[in-house]
Each structure stands twice: as structure tokens, then as C-alpha cells.
Design a protein around this nucleic acid. Sequence first.
DNA 1: CGATTTTTGGCAAACGTTTGCTATAAGGCG
DNA 2: CGCCTTATAGCAAACGTTTGCCAAAAATCG
Lengths: 340, 340
Amino acid sequence: MADVARLAGVAISTVSRALANPGRVNEKTRAKINAAAKQLGYTPNAMARGLRVGKSNIIMIVLPGSLYYGVSQIIPQVLQSINKSLIQGGYNLMIANLDRDEVSERHILDLAFGGSVRGAIILSSKLPEVDGRSLANSGLPIVSMLLDMSDAGLQSVITNDREAVREVTAELIRLGHRRFFYLAGPEGNYHDVERYGGVLEALEAAGLPKESVHRSGGRLDYQHGFDIGVQAADDFAELAQKPTAVIATSDDMAISFVSRIKRAGLSIPDDLSVVSFDGSPVCEFSAPPLSTIEQPVEEMGRTAVELLLDAIGQRQNPASVRTVIRSKLILRESIAPPKS
Amino acid sequence: MADVARLAGVAISTVSRALANPGRVNEKTRAKINAAAKQLGYTPNAMARGLRVGKSNIIMIVLPGSLYYGVSQIIPQVLQSINKSLIQGGYNLMIANLDRDEVSERHILDLAFGGSVRGAIILSSKLPEVDGRSLANSGLPIVSMLLDMSDAGLQSVITNDREAVREVTAELIRLGHRRFFYLAGPEGNYHDVERYGGVLEALEAAGLPKESVHRSGGRLDYQHGFDIGVQAADDFAELAQKPTAVIATSDDMAISFVSRIKRAGLSIPDDLSVVSFDGSPVCEFSAPPLSTIEQPVEEMGRTAVELLLDAIGQRQNPASVRTVIRSKLILRESIAPPKS
DNA sequence: CGATTTTTGGCAAACGTTTGCTATAAGGCG
DNA sequence: CGCCTTATAGCAAACGTTTGCCAAAAATCG
């Protein structure tokens, strides 16, 4: 920096101001300084700046350790969307994986308390907490995405899971379906609770008994989504009275389920209607094309970043601590009225 | 840190040594210091440390801007694998997206030259370079993954793309196929060149003319993989003499191609054999299950990290600058001898 | 031209560590 | 007890910025 100042013929403090605080310095000299910096190949040291101003420009995203359930299909989109928004705001994205062990929790806490990161977006249902340190009281702005953690006081950006499932179930009922097959994710998982709840609500609204839905899966904790579908197909085969409609909580499990079920001789949608969750692009090209509830990841990511940057900028939080972004039902050929 | 020293009844320098340089201090006092630190909820400031020692513990991964071609399916696995290995080594992973614009290049260079990162793993064919600054001469250890950039002097961890495609093509020839349809990714893309090259080599080895393969796609620069398959299906429909085997350069395009081609009344593998690239889990559940060349992402990621950390540790580079990890052909029902 | 505003210079402290140095203390050994 | 080894204390410099302060210089304006 001293070299740049010398070359530009200005004071070192002026260089600093020109680079970090573009308002405080004359346009002309700033140009001169930039030219000098470019000529010398100078880039300000981020850590020194961070140390001095007491804040970094890194945002951490906390991903659930195993990416293989449900959300796995959409993680790259989430990352892409968040990173893009962050960069526009001058921030960088760091990945943190929250596994089920203490090491990874400690690691994340070190990041948070060590001043390395400026804020966090979390996609995990559990806040790291060990040795009395907890992400919650790290002083970092945090926003939760995909999972509603507003109970824990976190801003949350979510979709209307429950409502979307309720509506699609209602639609299936309207088409004449009366017996349902529900493919669950890990039991107790937020999404599972919400989505299954949506099914039950729709049944109740239509005056159908809870027993109208058979729940399958949920035994595999954080397993690969495809496995759930495979097992569910076995499960399905053993049912005496076959359901006529399937509601799956991820595209992955729907795809493997359909594959197996077709092999067993059933035809979709003639024998069985199927709808799933996520909106993976691949659904359009399944056989048959799958109806799916598309998660607006792009918009959710953008919104999460907006909220986080607002919080960092000390601007007051928006009225609601929970931001719901509506998902979109994509209807394709996998749904039809039940065969007589 | 001063507080911790006071509480533990030791000097501040001792605390520093105990925390950062565990060898230099007595076991007993170290325990005392750790206890004090825990009690006070103290975490060392990473930026101050980084500033002082002149190095960060952040590794940057440079992803091609648009994740939607080819590799898109495997990005989450790559990230997961790399991050896991890095954390074990005490490093953190930062994401950098390399778009086709100068802004993103500048951003990456700022990261590199600003001392924010300690090394880089790149998955992009182009090294950021602007204003005379280039990633190549940033002094950072870099390893390339998926793409062979050993020509540019970068350590590269790759699969045997060319060979794998050559072998699968030879296998198709052995089965009796004589006319091929090749689904290309973006023209000039490293993977496209390698894979197409593999096809041509197999043809030549079997004494077949180059014209035995029809090349489709490649017009879409960095488009969504599924689109390529859709367009290729149109392309296929217009061919007078139909090929009997398809070699696709990503699972995505194979899936959409198959979907369209079946809709046109053709049956796989009776009318057309299909093999693709990536090893996406979804291939197992396609109709029919797709043969695919599986990229060993997990192992590649681990290896890339190993090489990078070696380079950081100043240990000498391994003999070869190019590390090839063999891919694995997964044979499924989408391949058969041609009809008659 | 004088008065006023804007811009810059120069200085120095601060951010929270690490680390080399010397000196002191503690312990073990013959 | 003296000698050696090992552990710690205490000090101070350094890492590369930012920033508040005041003075000096330059530009602008009436």
C-alpha cells in the first residue's frame, strides 16, 4: 500500500480511503491511485482489513451433514443462488457441513466465534452447540432457509409445504382417489411433519378417516432418497388393499418407487397416480412425466441473502420473522382419476 | 486472550503457544489454559492469527459459472468430498463462481491476491486473468479437478474419459453396432474433446470410417443438459439412416433424449442402445435403466485435496503432474445388440 | 481577493494474534 | 550444592490495514 501511495504521489491514508471508502476522495486522485494499484498488481489484504474493522465479509452456509435426503437435488441451485446474491453484496460464501458429530459442531462454532464469518444461513434443523457456546448466541445474524426455525427466534425463509401438500391431496380427492400412499422422509424431520400434516388436513377436510393414508418409509435416517422409494415399493406390494395415489416427499424417492412399481406390472397413472416434491428438472423426462411440487429455491436463496444482509446492516428486521415463498405445483401425466 | 491468561494464571504468550503450537508447552498448564478458555468461551480470532502468520486456512473452489452442463449432477458430491477432506486437514472451503464476466474473475483474483485463501481447486477450464493479474502467478498452490490442465502446469486430477469412451464404443461395435449418434456438450469443452476423441479412436481401431458417427448438440453453450437431449432427439428424427447406438456425454442429456425418443415410438434397447456419462444415481431408475460411465468423484475430490495440501506443505510434488482415477462403466439394460 | 468549502497529508493508535529474545523459575541429577 | 534441562514470564515488534484528528493545500465561490 505504501508503494502504491508513493507511485501515485499521495499519502498512504489517501490510498486507503480511495480503496475502501470511495466517497471520501476526489475522483481524479482516485483514478490515479487505481492506476498505480493496477500497475503494481496491488490487492488489499483482506485479513488485515478484517482485523482492523472487526468484521469479515464471509457468510457461512451450514448444510446438514448428509445431503442425501430430499433436499439433495436442490442443493446446487441453492448454493448458486445464494452465492450470486452474496457476491453482488460484496460477500463471500463459505461452506460448513454439520454432521452428527461434535467435531463438526465445534468447527462451525470456531468459525462463528473466531470472527471468521459475518453471518450464517442454515439449512439444518439443529443449531451447533457445545461447551456452552452456541450459534444462537454468537451474535451473528442468522437466517434459516427451507426449515422453519422461527420458533427458535430465527428468521426463516420457507415454502408453504403444508399448504401445497394439502392442496394437491385435495385435488387427488377431487379426482376420486380415496386411498393414499405416503412416502416419508426421516421421521420427525421438519419437512416430513409438515407434509404429512398437509395430507391429514386434506383428508379431514374431505371427511375421510386418517386411515385412508398408508405411511411408508421414514425408517431410513438420512439415507439416499432412492433407497426409500425402493423399499416403499416392497412395502406397497404387500398391501392387501392397494392405494390409488402416491404422495412422495422427494422426487428421488418417487422416481425409484415408480421404477419398481412399473416393473411389478402396474401402470402410471392408470393404476396409480403419483405426485412428489422438489421440482427436479428430471421429472419432466421420467416415464411418465412426474407431477411435482416445485420449490422456489432461486427465490428463497435470494430472499435469505436479502434478509441476512439487512440484518447485518442493522436495518430493522421486516415485520414478520417468517417469510413464506409459495411453491408451485407442476402438473404432468402422472396424475389421473383412479380406474373406476 | 489476556483474560484467559489471567484466569489461568499464566502469561499471554504461553496461552498463545498452548493454543497454536501445542508442542511448546507443558501438558499440565495446557490443560489449565484450555479449561480457562472454555470457561470464558474464548475462541482465537482467526483473522488476527491469519494476519500475523501471513496465511489463511481457507481453500477456494472455483466452479464454472453455469453448473448446468454435464458436471452439474456431480457437483454436490464433489463439494461434499472436498469439504470433508479439507476439514480433516484443518481447512475451510470457500466457493467461488467463475462466470463469463470480468466481475467474477476480478472477484476471484481479489480473493487470491488479497491473502484470503491458501490454495485453490479449480473445476473450470479457464484461469481467471485480468489486469495482468492471473491466478496462475498468484503464488497459490492450485490443483485442477475433472479437467486436465497439466499443459498449463497445473496438477490435475482427472478420469480416463477418453479411454472409457473408447472402450464402451468398442464394446458397442463388438455387439454389432455400426452407426452411432454422439450427443455433444459445448463444443471445444475439454470433456467433449476427450470423449468424442474416444469414439473416433474406437472407430478407427475397428476400421470404421469417421462418418459412422453423427455428432449432435454442441450448439448450446452451457445450457441445461436436458435441453441438449431434447434438441438432439429432433435432430435424430431427421436422420435418413438411423444410428443404432447413442453415446451421450452426460446423464442429463441421455435421459431427456431417451424420453423424447421413446415418445416417438422407438424402443430402447431394441431399436437403440444408449450409454451416457456421469454415473448419476437416477440412471438406475430410468426406463430402461441406463448404462453410464461413473465418475469417481469421491475419490477424485479426496485426491485433489491431498495433492493440494501436499503442495501447501511444501513437500515435493508427486512424480506425475497428472493423476488419473479410473472411471467405472456400469452396464444396464439400455445396451443390446442391434436388431437384426 | 478574501472567505469558504473540499480534499489531502501526516501522524499515530488500534485490531488480536504470533514469535523471537532474554531472563527467571522449577525440577532432576550426580 | 552446582549444573543442566525444561518450562514459563515478560517484553516488544510485527502483520497490513483503517480511522480519527488536525493542519495544510487546493479548489470554489461571491
